[in-house]
Design a protein around this nucleic acid. Sequence first.
DNA 1: AAAATTATCAACCGCGTTTTA
DNA 2: TTAAAACGCGGTTGATAATTT
Length: 353
Amino acid sequence: MGRAPCCDKTNVKKGPWSSEEDAKLKDYIEKYGTGGNWIALPQKVGLKRCGKSCRLRWLNYLRPNIKHGGFSEEEDNIICSLYISIGSRWSIIAAQLPGRTDNDIKNYWNTRLKKKLLGRRKQSQANRLSGSSHDPKDSSGVETLSNSAIERLQLHMQLQSLENPNFSNYDHNVSMWPCKLNPIQEKMMHSLQLVNESSNALMMQNFSPATPQKIEYYAQSNNPLQQEYSPMSNMMINGMGINIPESSSVLVPESDCTKQQQPSMELQQCWEFQAEIDELLSNKGTTPLEGQMSDQFDCFKDMHGAKDSMTWWSNEFEANSASSNSWDSSAVLDHKQTGMKFQELVQGQHRVQ
DNA sequence: AAAATTATCAACCGCGTTTTA
DNA sequence: TTAAAACGCGGTTGATAATTT
């Protein structure tokens, strides 16, 4: 049994709004407000529209100070940064761009910005491949990973490099990964898991050819510890855009040994992929990082601008979070509060040498 | 000039979450 | 406490415009 419809579908008008309808709705809301009930509003206004349709029309077009089109470079930067960090949370992204609606940003991303970014990456990759004697067989594993998830992963990594240049050369060596979570890390992991949940699902689905395997680690800790790890989470652990899969249990038995077992095929595939990205991203610009960003992504041409955007977002999020979903806000705030400490930890004593 | 293809974006839909009675 | 109602979000659709063949 389905849910009851929000209105009488047979008696409501659909499709584009006429200027008369717009005027009616606008006049009414400006005089009397919405009355806190969108479903009842059309009847009060005298419109044969669904309440949801009225709400959408008001929020996206009729309310004051709405901007359409003409996205600035700075807005591009913010959208890119936030998309990479939190995924398609359009309402949250819109909250950071005054006058912009989630629908507008979503459309802009899907139709233009995404192509602008990823199109350039594809071009770069095509140039690279055509310019070298690449054995297709060698690259097949990586090539099959070159889908939207991987593309977002690449954007992720670039952003991480922006956020913390110390990690621009991330480690391929498992022994360099943190083997134990302290409470702060655990808190951050949990927060980021919430923030990244949907993107994780997508990424893991596309990235892992099979269910992630168990990998045994030997931690410095004397206490047995069970953690959730995967190649992906380890890859992404050096920045703010950490991705944590939902499965892939890793046993950390009591031992002070630092060696690990033979890496799985997936893990090796991750390393190969990382190597490819390293190669792809290196050797351009004043610094490798600037080269990566300006060469491939228009919106990151002003690296400092992008970085500023991130800082600005982080600072402003708290102020704006009241209008966002509660879990989103708190998750990001947790992220903000624990992020620096987490990076310190990763950078410092929790790297098992 | 016309047909085909691609891009754009307003609007709809379904569903998870929150509020209310 | 619970069920219904309403809200709000993100994915998707479809009409139209723009571009290409």
